[in-house]
Write a protein that binds this DNA or RNA. Structure first.
Lengths: 209, 209
DNA sequence: ACCTGAACACCGTTCAAGT
DNA sequence: ACCTGAACACCGTTCAAGT
């Protein structure tokens, strides 16, 4: 039974989900595929390339067209789609952040963000900068969020999450223990801050709260 | 000549600056100190702890009091101080980002950011969220910026930086090739976007363009 | 108290040789 | 074309034993 490139990728994703990024080694992957370590190097030139392919797989679809008509809703939609994609695999945020550290230039939701910025009224170069800024935020927040969740699962965090029933940014009025609340609420706050900033830069009125 | 804990830390910083984070291994550090690898484990329980101490040293002083009177200038001052600290050592941003990934809660410029947010008129919990958002941006941007600079030094990047004489966000009118310009200009743009967002959230007038 | 010597249990990667 | 066998050059960490 010959090993295909996609089999290697599938095996790698399975190890990631079950054991985490730290336990994803070429030797372990080889063993799980019933093959010698060296065999992997016929399909991928090195581990970094394999990680890159994994990151691409995690992010597949996030750059698709947006359904929202408003530019601000479009940005929120893309940001949530990106966050969801990162959270859908163990250590997904960390993997993507590490892999895209320097080649953020490429794919991702970047183009979508830029488009929304232009629709908002920002000149293109500004929209591009805004897109980067947004990406830094989404990646940073999600890496943090995911590593916290993992520590909590192992039982290492002290403070307990409050109001587990708050689910959207609309509940932001609660005002207390926001820091330990639903990560999505925290995420939405940063996102709103950012969108407000874009609106101000574009010289648009605050059409929404 | 006995090895002190601070000697180990100094040696580690020296290797970081000269050879980078990837080449900072316990064995290499031991050799540079004229000692056996095991000796390091008398001073630090493990490598992660050593990296944490290095991150703390890199960030020493960034949480100091701010000189600016305006809250927005204060935020900019803190953000730049943090960025400068990260850039002052090879792979400094990467090291701090990796080490603080999950314990961002602690020190840093966080408290300073929170204070400025409160001064801006944000309720405390919102100011705390805003501080996180800002930290994610600063760390993400600086990691990216520093890794790009390193790739450029090795000669791997295609596009060449334009207008090397632009130095502050005031020059943002140039409009062309902003993406390849002075990283500080890019940084200042994201920062301004963010501060505008805080201002809008706090319900303050745009006192500055 | 502080360090050596020596091991344990791993890594990523290469490459002749096999089929 | 695809993989094995076996090595190369490393890692972080532990721990009895020395001084």
């Amino acid at each position: 039974m010959q090993l295909r490139r996609s089999d290697v990728l599938d095996g790698a994703m399975a190890i990631l989900d079950k054991y985490g990024l730290a336990d994803l080694t070429m030797r372990r992957l080889a063993t799980s595929l019933g093959v010698q370590p060296g065999a992997l190097y016929w399909h991928f030139p090195n581990k970094q390339t394999l990680l890159g392919a994994m990151a691409d797989r995690i992010l597949v679809g996030v750059d698709g067209p947006v359904t929202s008509e408003r530019w601000d809703d479009g940005i929120a939609e893309l940001a949530h789609r990106l966050r969801d994609a990162l959270l859908s695999h163990r250590d997904g945020a960390e993997l993507v952040a590490a892999t895209y550290a320097s080649r953020m230039t490429s794919n991702l939701a970047r183009e979508g963000f830029v488009g929304a910025g232009v629709r908002a009224g920002l000149p293109r170069p500004y929209a591009e900068l805004a897109a980067y800024t947004l990406l830094y935020f989404v990646l940073g927040h999600t890496v943090d969020e995911q590593s916290r969740a993992q520590m909590e699962a192992v039982g290492a965090l002290t403070r307990t999450p409050a109001s587990p029933d708050t689910e959207t940014a609309a509940d932001l009025g609660s005002d207390q223990d926001l820091l330990d609340g639903d990560p999505r609420v925290r995420f939405d706050f940063g996102l709103a801050l950012f969108i407000d900033g874009m609106r101000a830069r574009a010289g648009l009125p605050a059409t929404r709260a």
